[in-house]
Design a protein around this nucleic acid. Structure first.
Length: 572
RNA sequence: CGGGGCGUGGCGCAGUGGCUUAGCGCGCCAGCUUGGGGUGCUGGAGGUCGUCGGUUCAAAUCCGAUCGCCCCGACCA
């Protein structure tokens, strides 16, 4: 491919909207172009990278016996009503109507569609197991698209689904995916770790995330400094210190206008550990729930969802007033009726605590949880924080930003039951198919490679996903001898099977060198007037900056050698 | 949804009430020059100052509304 007429538009200056490294590189190098918030065009250079990534993904998925198919991106409402996710997905789902006023969505994921295929196609245990996958565009109306391609509203995902007869089969499919994912990310030249994760909207089964520890990430991770414990913030559990204060009878204390932990601690001159926060959650048609958590911790809403279900939401101010006869900020657990109370485990033996008095402008002192409240259960409901202790080894927990590359879930029978996807076992008994769901964000691999390998000069693609193997710089292209020699070199490289991009633009050398660095092609071959007389060619490696001076006759073998070497480095 | 910031040729920016024709750098076009890390010079093309409304003799500039984009948070397979 010639640089000259290509749709590559490198930018001389950093685009102002790009703050993260990968976003900056992708825009400046002309890999992507933004059309609207969270919506991008993949220009030829970026698309070639995504195609390389897809091929690696495809090879590894095929290798574990998954079959590729393509499901529609557009889907009628009804099937999502069967699973309940037409409701659950809420505003994150793009919805539209056809000319007959029928409702549709742009699929954010495909469990329902898979279950629909399965309920029609799978009859017997003999049809199982199955693994189906696709590489397809997904749509999610993210509340805040971010960092270019890292969190966008339209993105390309490899999603696969396993269908098994039982948990044992699911374990096998899950492990096959885990191994395939490790190979995929490794082959793409990325550094990553596997962490415990939460299923979120998918379900509550086992789930693991493949994440890269990079600064520009969209995710947060709790990691133990001492052992290898790593978990997504939503599921991470740390050891906290139990704190107790002198046991006294309950007394009311006026705290006019002091609602937040900060305000109350300052006003009463106590520490945040002495406070109990009360958070009220409601769900249509269900008993409301009061969650108690110590003042120095934040509530982990994901854990609430796991405990109570997706339909529970933080209550509105009106609901709070109705149940407690007090404004938010003055709510507490003492004397409440028709409300289930759950408390964070750190409050198990807490006494002498301060909490809302269920009376505007008042708190109570001397709360003894055991004595004064009817706590249904003590469980870990708090968000882990920097400096907590590891539950496994007692080491210090750190919070790091990370980039989620892939996610694997054990769905179990959630979708097969709600959509009626059953099979007949040996005894002729109908049983729900046991499902798993597995995703990889292709653009995130591209962005991650920028974060991990890019530098101030631009991208530096791992050879396996580089848009081209070799960048041929032709200096003084109007010089006849140079033109002739570059033609020969191009022929040699092409014959050797290398993919090349030819930069014979009639501009100064520096621009070409800088562009080649910016778009990050692993190997650069320079043909110029200096080398023409002696038939010498300059070869330069982007990652290491190494330079070689070779005879024209060796140029192809040398480039092939380097390519091989670069592949070897990835697999080490 | 809360907080902050920004919308002026393709890109990055300057311009807070009257210099007539809205500037500068880069890019683009023409010509020369230079030629191994963004060469120098000359001449050109290109702008409803996000949109709508208001104030004023006069608005890119002041006021109001609205749309869009970015960042932090909330949220998020």
């Amino acid at each position: 491919m010639k640089f000259d007429k290509s749709l590559i538009a490198t930018l001389r200056e950093d685009p102002k909207e790009a703050e993260s490294k990968s976003h900056r590189i992708l825009l400046r190098g002309g890999f992507i172009r933004q059309l609207a918030s969270g919506i991008h065009t993949y220009l030829p250079l970026g698309w070639r990278i995504l195609l390389k990534i897809s091929n690696i993904v495809r090879e590894e998925m095929d290798r574990i016996g998954a079959q590729e198919l393509l499901m529609p991106a557009l889907s009628p409402k009804e099937i999502w009503e069967e699973s309940g996710r037409w409701q659950e997905y809420g505003d994150d789902m793009f919805r539209l109507k056809d000319r007959k006023d029928r409702e549709y969505c742009l699929c954010p994921t495909h469990e329902e569609i898979v279950a629909d295929i399965a309920r029609n196609k799978i009859r017997s245990y003999r049809d199982l197991p199955q693994m189906w996958y696709q590489i397809q565009t997904k749509f999610r109306d993210e509340p805040r698209p971010r960092s270019g391609v890292l969190r966008s509203r339209q993105f390309i995902m490899k999603d696969s689904y396993s269908l098994d007869r039982d948990e044992k089969g699911l374990d096998r499919s899950f492990n096959l995916h885990r191994d395939a994912y490790m190979k995929i990310f490794k082959r793409c030249g990325l550094d990553f770790v596997i962490v415990e994760a939460s299923g979120g909207l998918m379900g509550t089964g086992e789930s693991k995330e493949f994440v890269a520890l990079v600064e520009g990430g969209e995710d947060q991770l709790a990691t133990c400094k001492q052992c290898d414990y790593r978990a997504n913030m939503q599921v991470a559990e740390g050891q906290g210190e139990h704190k107790s204060f002198a046991d006294t009878p309950i007394t009311q204390v006026a705290t006019p206008g002091k609602r937040t932990v900060e305000e109350v601690t300052e006003f009463l001159n106590v520490c945040a550990e002495n406070l109990v926060k009360s958070m009220f959650f409601t769900a249509a048609g269900k008993e409301p729930v009061l969650i108690l958590i110590r003042g120095d911790y934040e509530i982990n809403e994901d854990k609430i969802v796991c405990l109570l279900g997706h339909d529970y939401q933080p209550a509105t101010a009106e609901e709070i007033k109705k149940h407690f006869d007090a404004e938010p900020g003055f709510v507490g657990p003492v004397g409440v009726e028709n409300v289930s109370i759950y408390a964070d485990e750190l409050l198990r033996d807490a006494q002498g605590m301060i909490t809302g008095a269920n009376r505007d402008g008042y708190h109570i002192k001397g709360l003894n949880l055991k004595r004064d409240t009817r706590v249904k259960e003590f469980v870990n409901l708090r968000m882990i924080r920097h400096g907590d202790r590891c539950t496994r080894c007692g080491g210090e927990i750190h919070i790091q930003t990370a980039l989620e590359l892939g996610h694997i879930f054990k769905l179990g029978t959630k979708y097969s039951i709600s959509l009626g996807a059953n099979y007949l076992d040996e005894k002729g008994q109908a049983r729900p198919i046991v499902m798993g769901s597995y995703g990889i964000g292709l653009e995130r691999i591209m962005a991650c490679a920028c974060e991990q390998q890019g530098d101030e000069r631009g991208a530096s693609w791992p050879i396996s996903i580089a848009p081209f193997d070799t960048y041929v710089t032709v200096l003084n292209p109007l010089d006849e001898k140079v033109a002739q020699m570059s033609g020969e070199v191009i022929q040699l490289l092409t014959n050797a099977g290398l993919s090349i991009i030819i930069d014979d633009r009639d501009i100064s050398a520096g621009i070409k060198f800088n562009d080649s660095d910016l778009i990050g092609i692993p190997v650069r071959v320079t043909v110029g007037p200096k080398g023409v007389k002696s038939n010498r060619i300059d070869i330069y490696m982007r990652q290491t900056g190494e330079r070689l001076d070779v005879d024209k006759s060796e140029v192809a073998t040398k480039c092939l050698q380097i390519k091989k070497l670069l592949y070897e480095r990835i697999s080490e």
